[in-house]
Amino acid sequence: MSQNRSSAVMAQRREPHDSLDFFPTPPWATRALIEHVLVGLGKYGYRSFLAHSVVWEPACGEDHMVNALAEYFGEVIGTDVDARMHGGPPHDFLMPYLPYIVEHRPGPHFVITNPPFRLAAEFVARGQEVAEIAVAMLVRTVFLEGAARYREIFESNPPLIFAPFSERVPMLKGRLDRKASSATSYAWFVWPGRDFKRTSIDPKLIWIPPCRKALERPGDYEEPDR
């Protein structure tokens, strides 16, 4: 029997407990958050507002999401628990203190990241403590499932927006690959920050239309300079 060597990342993947769960985000998927999702926050979605806002990416890895966010936000702060990837001082986002680079700036207004899936719930809670306006997490759509997760998060703290991608977002462990495929579905979940006054407890559903072709840019899949 031949071995299946497909590069597709399957929905049932499992990561070791101590894994960094580093699956770099294709930049077009980050741009889709701005172009198709954050407009759902009303006045906070306008580009002019984002251009004067500070966003923190606390699991930035090799800065793929940081670089895409920098196209929209006035200031982007990138930190990661692993300094070997990020090239800066390590910071554990789940610790109850802010790194110097965050503490001595306004905001952050937004926290936006692709968190380790096994820690996604903890990232949401911590993000809501530190972000003034909104917290956006890119996670597998199966994050919606599970009785424990419902009781711990969704029953009392549903997202403002649930935005599934209508096309696949291929992510491979440890690297970007333009030719990668995927059987896994992803979505952006957006929660209110500590100063955002929500008007409804019911999440807004926003389908992200097919947009990869329109949002990819030259150089997206090149290795970042170090």
Rank of each mutant, 00 (worst) to 15 (best):
S6R: 06
A8L: 03
V9Y: 13
M10R: 15
A11L: 09
Q12N: 13
R13F: 09
R13I: 05
R13L: 11
R13S: 08
P16M: 03
H17T: 08
L20H: 05
P24D: 03
T25A: 03
P26L: 08
W28M: 08
A29L: 12
T30R: 07
T30M: 09
R31P: 10
L33N: 01
L33C: 10
E35Q: 12
H36V: 00
V37Q: 07
L38I: 05
L38M: 14
G40M: 02
L41P: 12
K43S: 14
Y44R: 01
G45H: 06
S48A: 05
A51L: 00
A51V: 02
H52S: 13
S53N: 11
W56A: 04
E57C: 02
E57R: 05
P58E: 03
A59R: 04
C60R: 07
G61I: 10
G61M: 09
D63L: 08
H64I: 01
M65P: 10
N67G: 04
N67H: 08
L69A: 06
L69D: 06
E71V: 04
Y72D: 09
G74E: 12
E75A: 10
E75Q: 14
V76M: 03
I77G: 08
G78D: 11
G78V: 03
D80G: 06
D80E: 03
V81A: 15
D82V: 11
R84N: 13
M85P: 05
M85Q: 15
M85G: 13
P90N: 01
H91A: 03
D92Y: 00
